[in-house]
């Protein structure tokens, strides 16, 4: 009985870090998706191509932990401002994800037949509407599985927020482990939480994918 109570208490304690994990995931996704789409479209239109390619290369070529530390510790020192752990985390995960998203969207855009752009041009559809209503809906459908993969990767990366003191699932499990000098149970509970979210994301993605397919076939 005592062990079961402790286990449930531990689940609640670690679960209190869920809000931080979700906040980081959603914030990172919003920035990553928005910036990723903008970068991919600009790159396709040959605007700042070299600069964007370098940005993507640097963000994909350096450790996430380094980027997070730079944004939380180094840049505020240089600029003389203080960022909260959550703000720094959202920016770091969002910017890092934008590099991967930009590459996913680039592949999606390039796989869209050139004729679709031409058909829109022939019909006198503006560039904004061409992208918004003609190209991007097709791109989304094509890259949906890759996008799901990126969401899952982002979720797992949010665990790095624990290194700068963010009270997420990972950090909560570490606190509990340090308090009771036992690592196995708290880490397994955190792992179960992460895996449950991943299963939820995968399930949601499959349903959305089926709905998209039903609409198009």
């Amino acid at each position: 009985m005592g062990i079961a109570v402790k286990f449930i208490d531990a689940c609640f304690f670690i679960g209190s870090g869920l809000s931080v994990t979700f906040f980081l995931l959603l914030g990172g996704l919003v920035i990553g998706l928005t910036l990723g789409i903008i970068l991919a479209v600009l790159r396709y239109k040959n605007i700042g191509r070299q600069l964007i390619a370098r940005y993507i290369s640097i963000l994909r070529g350096t450790p996430m932990l380094l980027q997070l530390s730079l944004i939380y510790f180094a840049i505020p020192t240089l600029l003389g401002l203080q960022l909260s752990v959550l703000t720094a985390g959202i920016f770091a995960f969002g910017l890092n994800s934008s590099a991967y998203m930009a590459e996913i969207f680039r592949a999606g855009i390039e796989s869209t037949p050139q004729g679709q752009f031409e058909a829109a041009k022939v019909l006198g559809i503006s560039s904004l509407h061409t992208w918004k209503d003609i190209i991007l809906p097709q791109v989304f459908r094509a890259i949906f599985p890759a996008l799901t993969g990126e969401v899952i990767a982002l979720l797992k990366e949010t665990a790095l927020i624990a290194t700068i003191g963010g009270a997420d699932l990972m950090r909560k499990s570490q606190v509990l482990a340090a308090e009771y000098f036992t690592y196995f149970t708290p880490l397994c509970i955190a792992g179960l939480y992460y895996y449950a979210i991943v299963l939820f994301v995968e399930n949601l993605s499959r349903k959305l994918e089926r709905r998209l397919d039903r609409a198009h076939h």
Partner: peptide
Amino acid sequence: MFQDFQLFPH
């Protein structure tokens, strides 16, 4: 009218 129509699939 395009040879391959280029209708919008979605």
